[in-house]
Design a protein around this nucleic acid. Structure first.
Lengths: 157, 157
DNA sequence: AGTATGTAGTTGATCCTTCAACGAGTTAGA
DNA sequence: TCTAACTCGTTGAAGGATCAACTACATACT
């Protein structure tokens, strides 16, 4: 006979922390997104994609790899890149050595948009998050989230 | 003569932590949302709303107050409640003492849906987040996010 | 070679969120 | 009291995300 695994309930404190986390990420992301849109017409997900591209050799990454890097679905990346392409921030290129492959390439214009946006974004991260965090606490949070990423990223089960 | 305030750039470490945070929240929220949808047909935002209602006196909260509690726009709450109402999880009631007021009320059916969903949700928070966090680190994260909420919540400027 | 299975990326429908505009009720001031 | 300014909540349109279905290419197996 087996004992069923009871749902591990949360302590009062864990609950408080979880709610702070939920509320905090909500308002933080919302705010960063609004700042970016208002100043540069870019959403956070778009910005993240541009950052990855800007760091890649040739400012170019294949769609699937990009999707994995930002943890979005391939479909989502397709749509996002389509939008960015309309604004000449990115272009699509055929991938050598894989007939199916398509890679997204950051244009010069895209790069300069990103440069401008980076100021707004970094300022926001600094003012809204880092300024609100004790340095040690911030490192502790980094440890946690790094573990979360390692456990969950790419796993759909 | 003034020195212009330069954009405070991030150190390598701050950058790493910020990316872990971004990636971690993305995969974590995504996973919690999927688990909830798969098992109970509820999204995270919907679940959050039901939790607030379940804790309120009369299982009832006014729309504006609800919007503020979960940090969503009023419009968004209107739409979300409309959907939940279609599934008989919530009903709308007139608010005494303010002719404009509408309050959302959790139905008995809604309450039982929530009870079931809570198991899935809490299990997820536990397995994906708390298990990945040293107890002290978790408290540190709570401090940070609490500060973020206090700085940003409700401020749109 | 020929077939089967898997992977890359796209598409269009549907659902959810945002945004601007609105009707209705409330509050404060002349 | 009458009006101006504000708050409450809703609406519909537009933009973005998700999902299932699909084409096309690649790989592995016989």
């Amino acid at each position: 006979m087996e004992t069923t695994t009871a749902t591990p309930w949360l302590t009062e404190e864990q609950q408080r922390i979880w709610r702070s986390f939920l509320g905090g990420t909500t308002v933080l992301m919302d705010r960063l997104d609004r700042d970016l849109r208002a100043a540069h017409g870019l959403s956070m997900p778009e910005y993240e994609i541009l950052v990855r591209l800007s760091e890649a050799p040739g400012r170019s990454i294949r769609m699937a790899e990009l999707a994995d890097a930002v943890a979005h679905s391939r479909s989502r990346v397709t749509h996002t890149i389509a939008r960015l392409e309309r604004e000449n921030i990115v272009v699509r290129g055929q991938c050598s050595e894989d007939g199916r492959g398509v890679s997204a390439v950051l244009t010069d214009h895209g790069f300069s948009v990103l440069e401008a946006a980076a100021h707004t974004h970094v300022q926001g991260v600094h003012d809204y998050l880092i300024e609100n965090a004790d340095a040690q606490d911030f490192i502790a949070m980094g440890r946690i989230m790094q573990n979360v990423v390692e456990q969950l990223h790419g796993k759909n089960f």
